[in-house]
């Protein structure tokens, strides 16, 4: 490995703190990926290598876990991640209108990041808020009972 270390001492300590909850180090793999993502917003190849070393796992093994889960990002994302529920109750309650509005307004499709790096658009399964469908999450905030008008105002609050 060449170049600068990606993971800070603080991150490494946080990852190692997970070990005490489990009988084997590799059980901290998912938590470790989440910690890396918390600080870097995504998991780069270099960060993944360093994490594998801490977990005493092979790089491939860690990557196979990282690529399995929906919410570990192996590509950079924008400043805000929009996760749109595309499941059944939201479908019934107007998902199509919401996604059409978002794609037009931001000029991006699912999996893409807006040119100004402000938003990444992703779909997710049911967010467990079906009585307020249609629903989406921006960063950690849940927004329900959406209409295009309401969503327009919501988007404005994420700079």
């Amino acid at each position: 490995m060449t170049g600068k270390q990606i993971l800070s001492e603080k991150e490494i300590a946080e990852i190692k703190a997970v070990f005490k909850h489990f009988p084997v180090k590799s059980a901290a793999c998912i938590e470790g990926l989440k910690i890396v993502q918390k600080y870097h917003h995504w998991v780069s190849d270099e960060a993944l290598k360093e994490l594998a070393a801490i977990l005493e796992m092979s790089v491939d093994a860690v990557d196979s876990v990282a690529t399995y889960y929906n919410l570990i990002f192996r590509k950079p994302v924008g400043r805000h991640v929009i996760l749109v529920c595309n499941s059944v109750s939201c479908y019934i309650m107007g998902y199509n209108e919401i996604i059409t509005f978002l794609q037009q307004k931001l000029g991006i499709e699912y999996g893409e990041t807006s040119e100004d790096d402000r938003f990444t658009l992703l779909s997710v399964p049911c967010l467990g808020d079906c009585d307020h469908a249609p629903v989406l999450i921006i960063d950690d905030d849940l927004h329900g009972n959406l209409t295009p008008d309401k969503l327009e105002k919501i988007l404005d609050s994420y700079k």
């Binding site: 998912i30 989440k34 876990v65 919410l71």
Partner: peptide
């Protein structure tokens, strides 16, 4: 333990694999 997505994690044996840090 906070999961990182995937419906199959709710299936109890897949959940156990996820808790062990593996693919669910």
């Amino acid at each position: 333990h906070i999961s990182v997505g995937r419906y199959i994690c709710g299936e109890e044996t897949a959940l156990l694999n996820a808790l062990e840090g593996k693919r669910a």
